[in-house]
Design a protein around this nucleic acid. Structure first.
Lengths: 313, 313
DNA sequence: CGCCGTCCACAACCCATGGTTGTGTCCGTA
DNA sequence: TACGGACACAACCATGGGTTGTGGACGGCG
C-alpha cells in the first residue's frame, strides 16, 4: 500500500469529489480516479459511490477513513523522528529492568505533547559519543565508568539511586524472606541475561561480584523480560536482580516475589547526561520534570561502586 | 512513502542483514538494498551502517524503527477494518453531543482487545438498511421513527434515556438558574446546528417544538462541537441542548453552564439495534456491556415523543 | 424536453519506478 | 594471500502510474 494513495483517499473523502482532491494534490482527476480504483481493488471493497455531483463515502469508506487518517499521522511522526531540526527528543535508556524507562513513561504522561523517541544504546561511551554528535539528546547512565571521566561538554545530574531487589519464584529458598542481607546471596545463582560485557552496567555487577562474592550469570541469550520472568518463576534455584522502581507487568499467578536486599543495599546510580549546548526545549522540560519527581535517597547502608561519582544533589 | 519499503526496513532491522530480509520477502538482495537506499534518500538520513557481516541500525534507524512498526500495525488494522469476515465491530452512533459515543468509549475501555469502528450514518432508516445488509453490526438510534415500525429481523433494546440539558454561555439570561422548566424556554433561541431534516433526530425536536412552542434553529452549517461551544459561550442570546451524559472537552474559561430542564425533562431515548442473525462475537460483548452499565431511569416527569417505543427493560 | 455543465471512467500513450541478473568492492578470516 | 560473505553499482526490462483525450451518466435549466 502506498501512502500517497491513502492521502488521495483522505483528500477525496474530505473534498467529496475527485476533481477538487486532484487540484489539491496537483494531479489530474484521472490520476485520482485511478488511485482510488487501485485502492478499492486492493482492499476488495468499494470506498466511494460515484455520482454526477461528486463521490460519497460508502460505509466501508467511512470505516476506513479514520484508519487512513491515523496512518498518515503515524507516517508523519515517523518522518519527524529522523528529521533534523525540531525532531522529537531522543533519550537513551539503559536496557531493561531498571528505572529510566519508567521515568520516561512518567515524563510522557506529564507532558504528552512532547514527542519522544526512546532508544537503547550499547554503553555509556556510545551514549556520550551520540550526545556529542547530536544524534541523541540525553541518556540515562551510571557515570562515570571506571577510569573514564566525562568530557567537559557533557553535563550530568544524578536523578535516581535505585535500590536493587531480588526477584524469585515461589519455590526459591529465599521466597519467604522479608529481606535478605547481601552476604547471604553468596552461593545462590543470580541470573542477569542481557548484561553485555564491556558496558558500565556489566562493570557495576563485576564490582558487586568481586566485593561480595556473588555468583552472577550473565550468560545465555536475552529473550526479553517475559521469558526471564517465566524462567525465574519456574526455577526454584534461580533469582535475578531488579530495580525497586521497575514496574513489571506479568501474568497473575506467577507467584514472583520481590525481596529487599540489605547490609548493604546495592543501589544503581542513574544519572541523566546531556550536552552543555543542546538547545532542545524538551530537554529542559525533561530536566525540570526529573528535578521535581526524583528526590535524594539516604545513602546510609547502601552500596555503589567506587568509580561512581558522588551525589551532588 | 511505500509501506512495502517500510516492511523491508523492519525486516532488515530484525534480520540484521539484507540477504536474510530479502529471502524472507522473496526478493533479491539487490532489491532490498535499493529499497533501503531509497528510504534513506527520502528521509535524508542513513538508517543502516553497512559492514562486511551485515547491516546494523544507526541511531536514526533505531529511532525510526518503532515508528515503522507502528506504521505497519496501523496499516494492518486499516485493512482489517474493511475486510469481510472477522472484521472489527462496526457501530453507528447518532451524531454529536449525545451519549452513544460516550457509551462506545466506555465499551472500548472495558474491552480494549475488541477492535471497533465507530461511524455516523444519516438516519435510522439508513442504519437499518446497513444492518440488514451486514455493512454495520449495530446502531444507536431512537426507534422507531414515526410511522415506520422496525422490520422483524432487527432487534432492539433501549439502553439509555438521556435527559437533555440546556447549555448556555455566562451572559445568557438563564445562566444563573439552577434548573429551568421546559415551558420557560419558549421564546428563547435554541441553536442546534447539525440536525439534518428527515432524520429521526429532527423528528424528535420537531415534536418537542410542536408540543412546547420552543424556537429551535437548526439552520446554518455545522462546524463541529468546538465552534458551537465557542458561539454559545460568546452569544448571550443563544443556548443549545446537550445530553446530560455527554462529556465535553472545552477550553477552561469559557464559562459554559449546564442547566437541567424540568417539568417535564425531555429525554432522548437511545436504543441499540442489531440484526437478529448477526453472529459477531463482539456484538454479544457489546450487548452484555450495555446491559451491565446502563440502568433504567424513572420516567416520571420526563417527555419523549409518542412514536418512541415504550421501555421494555 | 433537450441542451449543457459537471464529474467520473475508460483508452492510449509514455516515462519513471522498481524489479532482475551480472559484476564489483570491501572486509574479516583461514 | 586467497576465499567467502555481504552490500553496492550497472544494465536491462516490465510494470505501474501519470498524462491527454474522450465518452457516458446525471442534474439543472431554458
Amino acid at each position: 500500500m502506498d501512502l500517497d494513495t491513502v492521502r488521495t483517499f483522505v483528500a477525496a473523502a474530505d473534498a467529496g469529489q475527485f476533481q477538487e482532491a486532484a487540484a489539491e494534490l496537483a494531479v489530474t482527476q484521472q490520476a485520482v480516479s485511478k488511485r482510488i480504483a487501485a485502492l478499492e481493488r486492493q482492499l476488495g471493497v468499494r470506498l466511494f459511490t460515484r455520482t454526477a455531483r461528486g463521490a460519497r463515502l460508502t460505509i466501508d469508506g467511512q470505516a476506513f477513513l479514520p484508519h487512513a487518517r491515523e496512518l498518515l499521522r503515524v507516517a508523519e511522526r515517523a518522518v519527524a523522528s529522523v528529521r533534523t531540526g525540531r525532531r522529537p527528543l531522543r533519550v537513551d535508556v539503559i536496557a531493561s529492568r531498571v528505572a529510566p524507562s519508567g521515568l520516561m513513561r512518567g515524563f510522557h504522561q506529564a507532558h504528552p505533547e512532547i514527542d519522544l523517541d526512546v532508544l537503547m544504546l550499547f554503553d555509556v561511551e556510545t551514549a556520550v559519543a551520540a550526545i556529542r554528535s547530536g544524534a541523541i539528546d540525553a541518556s540515562f547512565r551510571a557515570v562515570a565508568a571506571p577510569g573514564r571521566p566525562l568530557p567537559e561538554d557533557i553535563e550530568s545530574v544524578r536523578v535516581l539511586d535505585e535500590p536493587l531487589q531480588l526477584l524469585t519464584g515461589p519455590g526459591h529458598v529465599l521466597a519467604g524472606a522479608r529481606s535478605v542481607p547481601l552476604a547471604r546471596l553468596a552461593g545462590h545463582r543470580i541470573w542477569m541475561p542481557g548484561i553485555v560485557p564491556g558496558t558500565e552496567w556489566a562493570a557495576y555487577y563485576d564490582d558487586l561480584v568481586a566485593e561480595f562474592g556473588l555468583t552472577i550469570e550473565a550468560t545465555g541469550p536475552n529473550f526479553g523480560s517475559d521469558a526471564l520472568l517465566d524462567t525465574v518463576a519456574d526455577t526454584p534455584a534461580l533469582a535475578t536482580f531488579m530495580g525497586e522502581h521497575t514496574r513489571l507487568v506479568w501474568p497473575a499467578g506467577h507467584g514472583l516475589r520481590r525481596i529487599p536486599v540489605t547490609d548493604p543495599t546495592p543501589v544503581y546510580p542513574h544519572s541523566l547526561l546531556w550536552h552543555r549546548d543542546n538547545p532542545h526545549p524538551a530537554l529542559a522540560a525533561l530536566r525540570a520534570h526529573l528535578a521535581t519527581t526524583t528526590s535524594g535517597h539516604d545513602t546510609a547502608g547502601t552500596w555503589t561502586p567506587d568509580w561512581v561519582i558522588p551525589r551532588t544533589g
